[in-house]
């Protein structure tokens, strides 16, 4: 055939076919997407510190292990309150003359998704310790340590941000201080939150929800009301362990112990439910605790399971709380005026 024996025609045809398909699946959808999406009105623009932090996030290749996308599937519920939308990424523009846009969606989840890490783990103290060496707070972690974002000083200045790490992790007689880079990176992490959707329109649904769970518990009436189908230890590992540790001993100078804590073993669970739902920042010597319960939208059953796990572990031996009790307290908290 002449067509196949003529190099201009042959390669011209291949080129045109490829260009046409490229326009159809890449260039035109990309242009359409950037023209028809705007940031949500409730989205907060990045602060200067957060912009610098994002550049550090990019240059250290954090995207190799951390995604920033909540997919519309049930298993991604743990990473955000709603599936991600095109509008969530609309504010990403070209970084600068040298660098492309950094949407940072990622394709690998070797580490956790960070879409809403700013709500899930807003504590600056925790993030700094974790960045200095992740294994201080999570011993199974395989995340790299970032010691070059910190300085060791004999005598820190007044404005320096001191990071309390166990003695084994730093030189003796020195004090660990966060550099501006570390603070910027944490500012970026703290800024990562899902913006509220405007108006009455609900968020898109999570697909592939698990259904079989409900059918088996037909004889729930026989269960005592302090026992739930939730696994307290698993929930503790997901929501609490990063700070308070598996041993319940917390971390000296950063996170308080739950082992032998009067708040935990108190007969009246009001205070502990309150702390789980609304966070806590009353003690100077420890970092602030985020509103874990509200952020993760924990149910009364789940909260009761966590409390009961804490009340019965590490030598703690307090009476268990019932779901009903927790439910009442949660209800009361919700009715309280927001400050």
């Amino acid at each position: 055939m002449d067509f196949f024996d003529n190099h201009n025609k042959l390669f011209g045809a291949a080129f045109l076919l490829f260009i046409g398909l490229t326009a159809f699946v890449a260039v035109l959808p990309a242009i359409d997407n950037e023209q028809n999406n705007a940031p949500l009105p409730s989205a907060v623009p990045l602060s200067d510190a957060a912009i610098r932090g994002k550049a550090l996030y990019v240059s250290n290749g954090c995207v190799a292990c951390h995604t920033q996308q909540v997919r519309n599937v049930d298993m991604d519920k743990v990473w955000g309150q709603r599936p991600g939308l095109a509008a969530d990424y609309a504010s990403n523009r070209r970084t600068d003359f040298w660098r492309n846009t950094a949407t940072l969606m990622g394709t690998e989840r070797t580490g956790p998704d960070l879409t809403s890490i700013g709500s899930r783990q807003p504590s600056r103290e925790w993030n700094l310790v974790h960045l200095y060496n992740p294994r201080i707070v999570i011993k199974q972690s395989i995340m790299p340590a970032y010691p070059w974002l910190f300085e060791s000083k004999a005598e820190p200045a007044k404005e320096d941000v001191v990071v309390n790490v166990p003695d084994a992790f730093q030189r003796q007689g020195m004090t660990l201080v966060a550099t501006q880079d570390a603070l910027d990176l944490v500012a970026y992490l703290q800024s990562l939150k899902q913006a509220e959707l405007p108006g009455a329109a609900g968020p898109p649904a999570f697909l592939y929800a698990k259904q079989e769970q409900k059918t088996e518990s037909t004889d729930q009436s026989t269960q005592s009301d302090t026992e739930t189908s939730e696994n307290g230890q698993m929930l503790y590992a997901t929501h609490c362990q990063a700070c308070h540790q598996e041993s319940g001993e917390g971390l000296k100078g950063a996170f308080p112990p739950l082992k032998g804590s009067t708040v935990v073993v108190d007969k009246d669970p009001s205070l502990i439910v309150n702390i789980i739902m609304r966070g806590y920042d009353a003690r100077q010597e420890y970092g602030a605790m985020p509103a874990v319960g509200a952020n993760a939208d924990l149910s009364p059953e789940q909260i009761a399971a966590i409390i009961n796990h804490e009340r019965s572990s590490w030598g703690n031996n307090a009476p268990k709380v019932s779901v009903k009790e927790v439910e009442q307290i949660v209800q009361k908290i919700k009715e309280m005026p927001v400050q």
């Binding site: 242009i31 846009t101 949407t103 969606m105």
Partner: peptide, 29 residues
């Protein structure tokens, strides 16, 4: 020869900044 042509097209599409804002970047990626 086609793969060299396509290689060039791919690099151009990936690096030209005209369609890289927001999710455009991800689609191109």
């Amino acid at each position: 020869v086609s793969s060299v042509i396509f290689g060039i097209v791919i690099a151009v599409v990936a690096y030209v900044p005209l369609w890289q804002n927001g999710l455009g970047e991800t689609i191109i990626q």
